[in-house]
Design a protein around this nucleic acid. Structure first.
Lengths: 228, 228
DNA sequence: TTCGGAAAATTTGAATGCAAAAATGGTCAA
DNA sequence: TTGACCATTTTTGCATTCAAATTTTCCGAA
């Protein structure tokens, strides 16, 4: 019970950048912070290593995994295939009520777009994509999708969405909903692919801008200047 | 170092059915068998749980995950998408030498088919599919593919391959190699999908035959052999 | 000063110990 | 005979402990 909690909390810390990519994950400090002993923390770190959030160096502890541009590219490529697959399967299996629910979410999202409420827009956006994946009714797919999108989200670029891209995204979502209503699996998968590719292009533009100031916090020679 | 070793060994035991699906994984016994203490074993079990090989019940230990027919279906569906994606990406990125290597593997595989050497045929088969995934040059994709195929392999049905299916598989592999040589990503992904769907149908037929004798061995002590 | 090396301190990996929860077994009553 | 209840045993989850490896610090020599 505790161990699951620890995995969630540390994963969250990694996601939020509280532990920056490349930084060491000091067992002792985290134990104090979380108020637990090393055993459950170490178990959690092993799990997070299996999930790809940290890398374990033998006898040298854990480091928060770094997300290179290539890593992000890889994640997006896989995410694209997973979403496309979800779209196809969803069209085979989704119930009318579920489509209606997504339709409601869609209209809500458009409203947030019109009022330029980005956080709420993102919320609906995620719920829609998640609903499509859920409608695919495939636990493995859902699990991998969760893992991949979470890792992508970790590379959170706070770049504002360009208006033209936002408008395009909304248009694509119209097409997504339409294909879903028509149960056009092939069409839906194509739209989802294009949609994600556009998002990826936007993220990559933001990412390149961001990468000018690397957050290297790993092997810095911290010379304590006679502090005691 | 020890912990990695333990993960591998226990995963192997689960793969091989030494610990049958649904059976309890007794910490103490495994510690004695492996000659280690509970700490590294427990860490390994957490990792295997994250990988989907075991399920952890709070205060009730670990059980080897059961593979239902639905689980296998889910795994095959995802595997299909991953292979298709790998095929598309591989055609974009693969070097000529790599294609030649796969071509060599292919011819070797055909020879094993002609001499009806099933184990060697399977070996080449796997190497070819693995080579295509590697050629996609996507670490995330490779990792997920590894995970999914390993889990599928766990549901090993020792059913002999029907000659007609075997012949079809070889023909499909001709087409796979051909598409790869032509760098026809779309074509390759379609062939890979069809190829895997055929395999899945074969496995499902074998699976249904097998499922007549349920392998429920969960609340029983794991008595091996004594096959006289 | 700067470099090299050895001792001290910190940190990691694994074993053991301890309290709590669950499984087991046995007794008694209906 | 069956079923319920309680004590015993086993197992699990986490904390603590111990040895080994690594990092840091200190000191002397070039």
């Amino acid at each position: 019970m505790l161990h699951e909690e620890v995995v969630s909390r540390v994963r969250y810390m990694l996601m939020e950048g509280e532990i920056p990519p490349g930084a060491r994950v000091p067992e002792r400090d985290l134990c104090l912070t979380l108020g637990i002993s090393r055993t459950p923390l170490r178990e959690a770190l092993k799990v997070l290593a299996a999930e790809g959030y940290v890398v374990l160096l033998p006898n040298r502890g854990a480091r928060a995994a770094k997300l290179t541009q290539k890593d992000i590219q890889d994640l997006f490529e896989v995410c694209e295939s997973l979403e496309a697959a979800a779209g196809e399967l969803a069209c085979l299996r989704i119930a009318d009520e579920k489509v209606d629910q997504i339709s409601v979410l869609h209209r809500e999202m458009v409203k947030h777009y019109q009022s330029r409420d980005l956080p709420q827009y993102y919320r609906c956006n995620r719920l829609i994509h998640q609903a499509i994946v859920d409608a695919a009714d495939n636990a493995v797919l859902a699990s991998l999708y969760e893992s991949v999108t979470t890792r992508i989200r970790r590379a959170r670029f706070v770049a504002p969405m360009p208006p033209s891209h936002w408008e395009l995204a909304v248009h694509e979502h119209e097409a997504i909903l339409n294909a879903l209503q028509r149960r056009d699996g092939t069409g839906l998968s194509h739209i989802l692919r294009r949609h994600l590719r556009h998002k990826r292009e936007a993220v990559e533009r933001a990412g390149f801008a961001e990468s000018s100031q690397p957050v290297e916090q790993q092997a810095k020679p911290t010379r304590r200047a006679a502090a005691g």
